[in-house]
Design a binder for these strands. Structure first.
Lengths: 201, 201, 201, 201
DNA sequence: CATGAATGAGGTTTCATTCAT
DNA sequence: GATGAATGAAACCTCATTCAT
């Protein structure tokens, strides 16, 4: 029936979607999550306004899809690090380092938090975001537990420590928003040091 | 007409302004900084739309005034704690405890961060917010330095430690947004523990 | 609190609403129910687009309010005629005559019918329209019954006769749409004649 | 390539066109003539949007073609009945019965009336619709005249009676729209009775 | 022939701000 | 001071139509 290459069509579609989401993240970074318009996002992607709606049902869907992909990707990343064969401190360092080095991390963080506000997005989206956030704590908590068994990490509930670790990094991440940088460096080694069990005098 | 009346009028005016700003904080928190309308703010304050303009020049002025008062008040609070006569650890505990106990802290934090985004507010506001944030680090850094001299706090650049301390608390604060709570407690004692120099062994 | 005349405000508001609905009916008459825009309605009322939303929540509300007022008013009219003291034939004549003479009757009829279509309006509106239509048959049926007792009207179920009577008038009404008139007159006396019991011969 | 294929292609094309128009009628009926989209029509026909334009020049062409075929077909039907060899009453009965039994009659009727509204379709279409409607009255008027000569039908201008007869049936037809049915039956025999000359007494 | 991506104009609705009362 | 009507720009989203594949 169709003289078109269905497989290629689907591939192209996925590439477009990826492209839109990528540009959208940067655009939201510049405009701010509550003020960005479909017009902005379309312009950033180099597409017409109307065409956005061939790929996404609504502006909200774009934002929630960015969140879904971002959080899922981050979860995979964290899990991969947690499963490596090295000390807990090395893993914590890698986690902190990779997140702080990420160009767009502040954008993801601000998206995660503002999207959880009641009217900014649907109940569904908010729940999903929080759930994924909580799930992503799991691997970090596992690293904390491993470190405690190795005697390398301070004592305390591993999940609680993971919670602090991630909150600290997110808090620092937010200070990196463009045009508003605080002139103080955030170093992975210093962060890890806070969670290191000190045996020296 | 009489001086007494002028004085009373001014007092009433200040009370109204205070009332508006108070209600607005919660409303902006719920609606999102980029989506809140003057209508929402007026409804929250129980006033008419038009009447808002007797007290504020614009919607942006309301937001920037909330931020100014909030950050200034927080700065005074931090300074007062830093100047008390007690150990650095006790001061850190008081700082963490008071901020975590504050009902609206998450709202202030989200406001601070979203207001710094490029188009959400004017260049002027963004600069002021960042400047006040940086200034408020000073007293915390002083506490860190005091603690290091007392041998109670981990080594490192005091300003950097203060930066981490505040970022951690802000990060935790964001998890307390209504309807999106992560089921993990944030305890002041645990936070302080991370910054405590451990002499065991 | 309010230095404005609340009573006068409310009266003015009702007058505006009435004015909008009046102009809207005519406009829908010209543009067609599915193609009329808020812009058209606002222009017809001599108001700005945005101001329409001070009086109505949506375009649909305007249409359903026109229907509600129109059908209710018609129901009152029919009831008033049915309760008069005269023969059934005279009542039928008055009903036919008044409806055929009404300038806007075709607009009401087309609104009633198109609004009942599934997607043109909400389930709620459709139900209300049909219910009011059915209710308005009651007084007409009463007239039919009276006429049968008087021996003036043809035999048959009074409600069914009322149904035919109203359907016939509505069908004729539709032929009166502007620019599409069929060059045949619709006369009340001829209509009544169809329902008259003939005793001649 | 061969003449046979061309012939077959044309036949298939006509079948497709017929299929599209058939599905479109129901869809336009449900969505409303001013709100139906090419997308809706394409989906109803189970075809792609773009492909519609191989069969029709525009959305308006689809609508006007439905009307043309529907009214022409109805005209032929009426003419056929009028030319049969039986009494006028039997013919009237057949006319009423066949139209009331038609599943889609209400859709045709609503289409006829809404398409006559000024902006819903072109001046050309509106004129054609009204002209065909008037023409279709001819055979019915002929039946009325025949009936009067037979002494079976009430006196009056035959064309006017035909006009009433068709208007009544159209009015009843509109009450049959899906989801909005009035719980009163429309019976061909009762309708014919209204136009029957009664000789009793 | 068949498909669906692409466009841009236009539709509905919201909103900050002004102003008469 | 207090109110809410009024405006018009701009937001989101839809859609008829075209076109490359």
């Amino acid at each position: 029936m169709s003289p078109r290459n269905v497989e290629k069509d689907l591939l192209q579609r996925e590439q477009r979607i990826h492209h839109i989401l990528d540009s959208a993240l940067e655009t939201i970074a510049v405009k701010g999550i509550g003020s960005v318009s479909i017009n902005d996002i379309a312009a950033a992607a180099g597409m017409s306004i109307g065409n956005m709606y061939h790929y996404f049902k609504s502006k909200n869907e774009i934002i929630s899809e960015i969140l879904r992909r971002g959080q899922t990707g981050y979860g995979d990343h964290v899990t991969r690090i947690a499963e490596q064969e090295c000390t807990a401190l090395e893993k914590l360092f890698m986690l902190a380092e990779s997140w702080l080095a990420l160009e767009n991390s502040w954008a993801y963080t601000i998206l995660i938090h503002t999207s959880r506000l009641s009217d900014a997005s649907s109940e569904e989206v908010r729940k999903a975001v929080t759930e994924r956030f909580t799930n992503n704590l799991g691997p970090v908590a596992a690293v904390m537990k491993q470190g405690q068994q190795e005697g390398l990490i301070v004592s305390g509930d591993p999940l609680e420590l993971a919670y602090y670790f991630v909150s600290l990094i997110q808090g620092l991440t937010l200070q990196k928003m463009p045009g508003a940088e605080v002139p103080i460096p955030a170093r992975a080694s210093s962060i890890v040091a806070l969670f290191t069990a000190k045996k020296d005098h």
